[in-house]
C-alpha cells in the first residue's frame, strides 16, 4: 500500500470535513440556536422570536425564571433522576445476573442470548402498545390474571375492582418495567461478551484453592469485567436521560395529572403540543447540562483502570 497518505496529513483533513460540516449544520448550529432561543420568547416551530415587553426587548431570562417555579418541571427532573437510578440498578443489575447465569451453563447459551436480546429489535412504539395491553385497566392481561388468582376482588354488584396501573401510585412502576425490559438484553450481550474474555484457567486455579461460586464472582469475575461493567453503567445513565418513546406512548401528556413527565417528554409537550418553543429550548438546555453532569460524575466514579 502507498503510505503517502499517512505521511501527509492534509488528505485526512479533507476526509474529516464532510463529517465536521454535517455536525456543524445538524448539531453545533442547532445547539447554539437552542441556547439563543432559551433566552427568547418563541411560539410555534419555525416562527421567529417576539419582543418580550413593550420596550421591544428580544432577550430575557423569563424562561429560566419559569423553570424554577414550574412544579411540573420539578416532577420531570425527579422522574428522570429516578429513571436513571432504576436503569442502573435494574437494567444493568438484571443483565449482569443473567450474563453470569448464562456464562455458567454449557449448553443453550446462544439460545438464551438471542432470547434476551430480542426485545431490542422491537420498536418502542410497538412495545408501548404491547405494554398498554398488559397494563390495561379493564380486561388487561395483568388485571385479568390477578382476577383469576383472586388478588383482585369484586364489589357488591359483581364488578371487578380493577387496579389502575397508570394511576399516581403505580405509574412510575408501570413506566419503568417496559423500559428496563427492553434494554436488559442490550447490556446482557455486552456483559456476556466481557465474561467470555475471562480466562477459564483463573477459575480452575481458584477452584483448586477452594473458592466457592460466590467467591469466584466476587474476587475474579467482577474485577475482570470491571471496565465492561463501567461501560454499561455509563451507557445506562446517559440512556436514561434520553428515554422518550416508550413513556410517551404509554403516558402521553404526563398522565395522570402531570405526574409522569420525564425531561424529554416534557420538552416535547412544551415544544410541539403547547407550541412554546422558547420554554422547550430552556428545558433542552437543562437536559444537556444534566447529560454533561452525569457523564462527568460517571467518569469520576467509574474511572476505568488497567487490570
Amino acid at each position: 500500500m502507498d503510505s503517502m497518505i499517512y505521511k501527509r496529513k492534509w488528505p485526512l483533513v479533507i476526509f474529516l470535513i464532510p463529517a465536521f460540516a454535517l455536525m456543524t449544520v445538524f448539531i453545533f448550529y442547532p445547539f447554539l440556536m437552542n441556547i439563543l432561543n432559551s433566552f427568547q420568547k418563541v411560539g410555534s416551530l419555525g416562527t421567529g422570536p417576539v419582543p418580550v415587553n413593550e420596550a421591544g426587548d428580544m432577550f430575557w431570562t423569563g424562561n429560566y425564571e419559569k423553570l424554577f417555579t414550574d412544579k411540573t418541571m420539578g416532577v420531570a427532573v425527579r422522574n428522570t433522576l429516578l429513571m436513571m437510578c432504576a436503569t442502573v440498578i435494574f437494567q444493568v443489575g438484571i443483565a449482569l445476573l443473567l450474563a453470569l447465569l448464562v456464562d455458567s451453563i454449557r449448553k443453550g447459551a446462544q439460545t438464551y442470548r438471542t432470547i434476551y436480546f430480542f426485545p431490542i429489535v422491537i420498536s418502542a412504539s410497538a412495545l408501548g402498545l404491547l405494554f398498554n395491553m398488559v397494563f390495561l385497566y379493564d380486561g388487561g392481561m395483568l388485571n385479568e390474571f390477578l382476577l383469576r388468582i383472586g388478588v383482585i376482588g369484586r364489589d357488591e354488584l359483581g364488578n371487578p375492582q380493577w387496579i389502575d396501573w397508570k394511576d399516581r401510585s403505580h405509574a412510575f412502576f408501570t413506566m419503568i418495567v417496559p423500559v428496563v425490559w427492553q434494554y436488559v438484553g442490550f447490556y446482557f450481550v455486552i456483559l456476556a461478551t466481557g465474561l467470555n474474555n475471562v480466562e477459564t484457567d483463573i477459575y480452575e486455579a481458584a477452584a483448586i484453592d477452594g473458592a466457592n461460586g460466590l467467591q469466584r464472582i466476587r474476587f475474579i469475575t467482577l474485577p475482570l469485567i470491571r471496565n465492561t461493567l463501567i461501560t454499561c453503567l455509563t451507557l445506562a445513565l446517559i440512556g436514561a436521560l434520553k428515554v422518550f418513546d416508550l413513556p410517551w406512548q404509554m403516558f402521553p401528556k404526563g398522565i395522570p395529572l402531570n405526574s409522569t413527565y420525564l425531561t424529554g417528554t416534557y420538552m416535547y409537550q412544551q415544544t410541539f403540543a403547547m407550541q412554546n418553543v422558547g420554554y422547550g429550548a430552556t428545558i433542552a438546555v437543562v437536559i444537556a447540562l444534566m447529560g454533561v453532569a452525569v457523564s462527568q460524575l460517571s467518569n469520576l466514579i467509574f474511572r476505568p483502570r488497567d487490570i
Binding site: S44, L45, G46, T47, F272, A273, Q275
Partner: peptide, 8 residues
C-alpha cells in the same frame, strides 16, 4: 404545529 412550521 408541523404544518405551520413548514410555512414558516
Amino acid at each position: 404545529g408541523s404544518v405551520l412550521a413548514d410555512f414558516e
